[in-house]
């Protein structure tokens, strides 16, 4: 069952002549994790905004093609400090801001907020004032705030950018669990080393268009490594002048070595 279907989508930001997305066709099924990778400006963030129905509805601009969303979506943007509501006394209130806006009854809000706080391991911070949090803590709060709205389609733009390695590991585990619970996940990330364990499919974007789609093995592809989109292991293997195909992970490299 599909959660998101994009057919031949092109998108232009206001007052620009060249499209930020070019003829993009992509679907994301429930229970699937799709990762968008590419260089800066490749169009991954724009694709997420289109998937969230924010572009062009809120951003302005022009869209051609069709975008069908079959579930309610929630998007985590890359800068957590601009996503805080500024209207919360505590982390719990901040996470509850979205569910309250949906008009849910208070017992349902409390259930979803407590669940999201537990998922992001935020219980020790629940009574803290959001303005006193570090960037990584606030990022986890914002992710919890989106998950508390129980979206069927979870859109994540560089979700691990502000997190330390422990926080990132928790996040990747959570994303796998979300997919297992039937949610569709579309994420843009430059943390390529996590993708072999997390993503079901990888979409390589280049200059607003899809260059390749495939399993995470794509990140050990010669062309991807040439474009700087290989995993660390594949990149080191290639830099060392060892013959291809390049291994994707340390485990793959060990198997090749033996």
């Amino acid at each position: 069952m599909r959660s998101l279907t994009l057919e031949g989508v092109s998108f232009w930001y206001p007052a620009t002549d060249s499209p930020a997305l070019r003829n993009v066709s992509l679907h994301v099924a429930r229970g699937e994790i799709v990762a968008l990778v590419g260089a800066l400006g490749a169009g991954a963030s724009t694709l997420l905004l289109v998937a969230a129905d924010l572009a062009p509805r809120v951003t302005g601009g022009r869209l051609t093609g069709s975008a069908a969303r079959h579930d309610r979506s929630g998007i985590v943007l890359p800068t957590p400090w601009t996503q805080a509501s500024g209207m919360a006394f505590s982390v719990w209130d901040e996470v509850a801001f979205g569910p309250a806006n949906l008009g849910w009854p208070t017992h349902e809000i409390a259930r979803q907020v407590d669940r999201a706080i537990e998922q992001l391991e935020l219980a020790p911070l629940a009574s803290r004032d959001p303005v006193t949090l570090s960037g990584g803590e606030l990022q986890r709060v914002i992710i919890a705030a989106i998950l508390a709205m129980d979206p069927g389609l979870v859109l994540l733009d560089e979700p691990a950018a502000e997190l330390d390695s422990d926080g990132a590991r928790t996040l990747w585990r959570l994303i796998r669990r979300l997919a297992k619970d039937g949610k569709a996940v579309l994420l843009a990330t430059s943390t390529l080393d996590a993708l072999p364990e997390v993503a079901d499919r990888v979409v390589w974007l280049e200059d607003g268009a899809i260059r390749a789609v495939g399993p995470p093995d794509l990140l050990a592809d010669v062309a991807a490594c040439d474009a700087g989109l290989g995993t660390s292991v594949a990149t080191v293997w290639r830099t060392s002048g060892l013959p291809g195909p390049y291994p994707l992970t340390v485990a793959h490299a060990l198997r090749r070595w033996r």
Binding site: L49, V58, A100, N101, I146
Partner: peptide
Amino acid sequence: ERALALETRGLVPGIRRTPL
């Protein structure tokens, strides 16, 4: 960015927010 964030967190015209 704040406009995008508030929109995705459900703060849109016509909502009936639950007072917490």
